[in-house]
Design a protein around this nucleic acid. Structure first.
Lengths: 347, 347
DNA sequence: AGCTTTTCGGCAATCGTTTTCCTGATTGCT
DNA sequence: AGCAATCAGGAAAACGATTGCCGAAAAGCT
């Protein structure tokens, strides 16, 4: 079989079509002035040889590679994937490809990747990660534009696109207030995490604006279900009653929900529950399904890619851009209006 | 600021060092015979200009791009990420980069990506997906080697690396038998899924080899927690008792565990529970943590990348290669020997 | 028929790097 | 001193594709 045969070059095509390489190039790219008959002859030869122009050679001439690099600071995962997909969407439409590099939290590795990407002459770089913290820039005066997505650069002159966590937390509180809850607790991740602090203070602020006292000071812990369960123990042990819990993540919310149920409190009748991240796995497994804040990561990735393209084309948009979050309401904060006719055995 | 300045070429370096480009190239690559003083002078010039050799131009000459493409058939996600990471690991050591393309289940899109990758002259292609089914090859007599990872190609002459699901299911059953369980049920995903069928029949076969009757015929449903909960309803409604459930996924296992607990059965004392996939999110959230089968996806990805490298270097290993799974034992099948001294409130 | 104007395509330079030759200059040897 | 052998580095030809320029043929005009 002809497997692993050297790919055809434009010289092969030209030879088969009986023209010069220059003419073949013009024919395939619709340039120059050629007879239609010649064009089709060349095209046919190209088709026959399965010719694909060597992108490397081409970019040598054009100076563009139609390629961007994407570096994840830490591990690629739940948050970076949607960002990647959104970016791919925005870039794919313009026929660009993505080099994916996983920095794994190692700055050395990261610098190595930056060099590699630069040697491959990418047109731009997107930096992302799994936390929303600000991070040091990946380099100074790099020869290509850089956009930070989800995470942000500590240099305010860099272009960063981040989720509007403040707005998200405020929406959560507003929703709970709107359904009449006034004794609201907040359980979230470790205080050293930017996201935990930002979401907590935004929630408190929104409560204060409404003139409502929080049911308890924010409970900082981990991002896990286990912590959610433990936090319920703390809340129940305290003397102040509560009719709603806003959680810093869906995992926490799920733990909270499970523990509440185990303690005989009904969700949402006794306690309304709001999560954060809108992570389908947690949302769907929870009983009942969780109301949550969607970070709109795919939109964020798309937006980041668009800003990168703009910068590549000479119109950078430096600064920190907040991308809106939105509330997704489910049964953990609303009793369904039409009660289920035939309740499933245990679902 | 010098931002967005044209990257330095080797000509710039040569000029600064006062040598010809050929000499500069030799100096930087350790070729030819040059005075040590000259080499260091060139290296210094390169450092000063932040020179990175243009990979495109270089590969034009060498015929190699040190790049591989990775195409995911359907969406990139929980299963393809570890495979990707493993592949990156194996390739990164050899200084290769990965082009990531998400086929999104659309064959047209996929073909488009194949063409793009070929035009970029990748040295090879890895194809992956989120299901273990066999799929049609991405192309016939492509000019570069292709390895299928996790999913497999329907052409047995292609190189595929797949998890040994049969072995995994057998290990699960063996473990349950080893801890003395004899009334074992199996709850798994939809029967139309290859994984569900394969795991179920392997489990049955292993039971038969041990001369043990299954507690019930395999229950096929969905991959979700909801289904796990429903399945417990079915099992409890049936008359045959059971002392263990082997589940086709950790999500199902988690649902099963929750429902068992809700029905007053203790895990693992009354019913031992084994999941599949060893997915940390489910494992850790479950009460108690789940014993599960690890697909070793990262190892699989590494192995796939190694086979791809071998093929690139002229030693292809065609055929279907099974990658071993392993059992990870946790509290859902074992009562801890040293009981917890101070039990957490609800954890 | 002889002239100008198009039309069509070939030639060659270019992009950045590597590598093969090849030429001077130095050294070693008798 | 004269010759060969070695060394250091330059010149130029690749690699594959694009594109500006230019020449030959064909067509249009009087």
């Amino acid at each position: 079989m002809g497997k692993l045969a050297r790919p055809a070059t434009i010289a092969d095509v030209a030879a088969l079509a009986g023209v010069s390489v220059g003419t073949a190039s013009k024919a395939l790219n619709g340039r120059g002035s050629l007879r239609e008959e010649t064009r089709t002859r060349v095209r046919e030869a190209a088709r026959q040889l399965n010719f694909e122009a060597n992108a490397g050679a081409r970019s040598l001439h054009s100076g563009r590679t139609y390629t961007v690099g994407m570096i994840t600071t830490d591990t690629i995962g739940r948050f970076s994937i949607p960002v990647l997909m959104g970016a791919e969407d925005a870039l794919g439409a313009g026929e660009m490809s993505i080099f994916l590099c996983d920095g794994r939290g190692d700055p050395i590795r990261e610098q190595y990747y930056v060099r590699t990407l630069l040697s491959r002459r990418v047109d731009g770089i997107i930096v992302t990660g799994r936390r929303t913290e600000a991070r040091p820039p990946i380099g100074v005066s790099l020869p290509v534009p850089v956009v930070y997505a989800f995470i942000s650069s500590s240099d305010p002159d860099d272009c960063s696109v981040v989720p509007d966590e403040v707005g998200g937390a405020r929406k959560a509180i507003e929703h709970l207030l709107a359904i009449g809850r006034t004794r609201i607790a907040h359980v979230t991740g470790p205080e050293r995490h930017n996201s935990a602090r930002v979401r907590a203070s935004a929630a408190l602020e929104r409560l204060a604006e409404a003139g409502v006292e929080p049911a308890a000071p924010p409970l900082f812990g981990g991002w896990s279900e286990v912590w959610g369960r433990q936090a319920v123990g703390i809340l129940l042990a305290g003397q102040t009653p509560f009719d709603a819990v806003f959680c810093g993540s869906d995992q926490i919310a799920r733990g909270v929900g499970d523990a509440l149920r185990a303690a005989g409190r009904r969700v949402p009748e006794d306690v309304a529950l709001v999560g954060f991240d809108n992570w389908d796995v947690m949302i769907d497994g929870a009983q009942p399904p969780l109301t949550s804040i969607d970070l709109n990561l795919e939109g964020l990735g798309r937006s980041a890619a668009e800003k990168l393209l703009a910068a590549i084309n000479g119109s950078p948009e430096p600064g920190r851009h907040a991308h809106p979050c939105h509330l997704v309401v489910r049964e953990s904060t609303t009793v369904p209006l039409t009660p289920i006719t035939a309740p499933s055995p245990l679902g």
